[in-house]
């Protein structure tokens, strides 16, 4: 077997290596770094480039057909009157977008989508951090405790949502029955405000274990010496955790916060299983509305417009969060 890479590498190495070496001084993924890489590739032998392209092709084709094409198809559909009732859809400009913002149900869905994601994430971070501290403590059967805590995350969202539908069911549900013993009478799923609270609580219950375990991993990276030093300096439990542990796991919490906000903006199954967006449109979120428009109302144009709005929200959150991260990284 001949070593075909040696001459190739030799030919390319002088220029490409120089470009690569220069790029080491740049931060990764900067424009100059990218240009240097491309210039390096351009000086490679044609057969080598071709082989590279062939090897990349399956992944590229898969990506194009599963992400790029659907994205542009959805974007295009959002500007048409496509529906099951129209044999030949045509371009309607921003009509679908205008209809969405004209509709009070869509507007309230937009507000609740953001409320749902932000409130859920805040609660999940606080409870998840507390749970992680508990799981990080030494106690008997800690392994079993950790496994049990993880259970909600392992249950499919639609299954837990259907469970919560019965747990919160007015009159017969576990929660209303329990609260009734204390004289508290709440119509969880038929009162618009409490229905919103119920879906957020169900979502938090399911997501907290995930946060707790990621934060737990962060806590385990805090050196014991720091706890010891704090103790020697006379810091109590509260001060140690507030002033030493919390700042150390803060990057994990911020990362998880951004991830969970983006992830939960797309929540659909909890709403579908628990309330169907009701009562009225109180727990309607954009992903569920898009589903309802596409698969119940059969209005593909409007559904695609909702999907694009959702994409823009996620994009905005993502860009803002990444910008903040980058700044924090530079500052640190």
């Amino acid at each position: 077997m001949t070593n075909s890479t040696t001459p190739v590498a030799a030919n390319a190495s002088s220029d490409a290596a120089a470009a690569t070496a220069a790029s080491l001084h740049e931060s990764r993924f900067s424009v100059r770094w990218g240009v240097a890489r491309v210039l390096g590739w351009m000086r490679l032998p044609k057969n080598f480039v071709l082989l590279g392209l062939i090897l990349l092709a399956p992944a590229l084709i898969l990506r194009i057909f599963t992400s790029v094409y659907p994205f542009f198809a959805t974007a295009w559909t959002s500007f048409t009157n496509s529906s099951a009732y129209v044999a030949e859809p045509h371009f309607v400009g921003f009509e679908n977008y205008v209809a969405i913002f004209d509709n009070p149900s869509s507007r309230s869905a937009l507000i609740f989508t953001i409320t749902f994601a932000v409130v859920s994430t805040a609660l999940e971070l606080v409870i998840g951090f507390g749970l992680a501290l508990l799981l990080n403590a030494r106690f008997r059967l800690r392994g079993l405790g950790r496994a049990l805590v993880l259970l909600p995350w392992a249950i499919p969202a639609i299954v837990s949502a259907l469970g919560f539908r019965f747990i919160f069911a007015d009159g017969s549900g576990l929660v209303p029955t329990f609260l009734a013993w204390f004289g508290v009478d709440i119509a969880w799923l038929t009162d618009p405000f409490w229905a919103q609270v119920a879906v957020i609580l169900a979502n938090v219950w399911r997501s907290v274990p995930f946060i707790a375990f990621v934060v737990l991993a962060g806590l385990q990276g805090v050196p014991d010496e720091l706890y010891e030093a704090a103790r020697v300096d006379g810091a109590g439990w509260w001060r140690t955790h507030l002033q030493i542990v919390l700042p150390l796991v803060m990057p994990v919490l911020i990362t998880m916060g951004v991830f969970m906000v983006i992830f939960q903006i797309g929540t659909f199954d909890t709403i579908l299983g628990m309330t169907g967006g009701g009562p009225g449109s109180a727990t309607q979120v954009i992903p569920y509305l898009a589903y309802q428009d596409a698969f119940i109302g059969l209005n593909y144009g409007r559904s695609s417009a909702l999907a694009m709005i959702l994409f823009l929200i996620v994009l905005a959150v993502g860009v803002i969060a990444l910008g903040r991260f980058r700044r924090a990284e530079v500052e640190s």
């Binding site: 149900s105 009701g278 009562p279 009225g280 119940i296």
Partner: peptide
Amino acid sequence: HPQAAQAETIVDDIGQSYLTGQM
């Protein structure tokens, strides 16, 4: 309704909103 699926969804939303006191 010629677009019955969509029309029925509208009745669902508005009917529930009214029956739960949201309008």
